[in-house]
Amino acid sequence: MIKFIFITILIVFSAINSYSQDASNIAKELLSEYNKINTFQSDVSIKIDISYLNAPEKIGKIYFKSPNTTKVDIEGFSMLPKQGTGNFIGELLKLKSTVISLGKEKVNNIELTHLKLIPNESKDIVLVDMYVNENKMTVVKADITTKDNGTFYIDIEYVNSVKFNLPSKVEIEFVVPNFKMPKAFVGPRDKSKVDEMQKEGETTKGKVILKYWNYIVNQKIDNSIFKK
């Protein structure tokens, strides 16, 4: 009996170990793909969709320099999500993490490998769920749970025309606190609208869509651009 239990534990342990090794190998392979990007610059458009925020779509340039310097050059004022810009997947993979594979999942008829990354040293990121297309070695979905800013759900479409893992479209969903203007600060004209907003919960969903085009990859970018 003891022998049977011992063998079972051994089998389970080695299975977990091999799964974990598989997951680590996939993560390493992904990292080497994303590491190919040392610098890039491209055109970018940012569209923000939050119920209480009316902001125009912004178009400008984005510059990235490895390991984690991103600069967005947009005329006037712009807002960038805290997660999901630059080579953010590469940056996530660079974190020292425990990687576990949770098996295969079908998303939009594509078989994806579900990896769970538990960063060991990150101050902000607690957990990352990555969905990997192993055929193309790309991460097409990532759920990033942070310590202070909630969870970001990210969907990525890639540029087919370049040999690097560069996104053409990134959709980021997250939860933001609701905006509640005190009634005393609005006139009678806006009271009903404030009433409507007060009925909504403490939080609401937000979405940001980033589109990238005209990539220039791995060409020297002047440091002064990042200092602006």
């Binding site: 004022f77 807002m79 202070d148």
Partner: peptide
């Protein structure tokens, strides 16, 4: 304030 937890602000408002 409600937006600053999720966004970095660039440029002058």
């Amino acid at each position: 304030r409600v937006l600053r937890s999720s966004f970095d602000f660039n440029g002058e408002l």
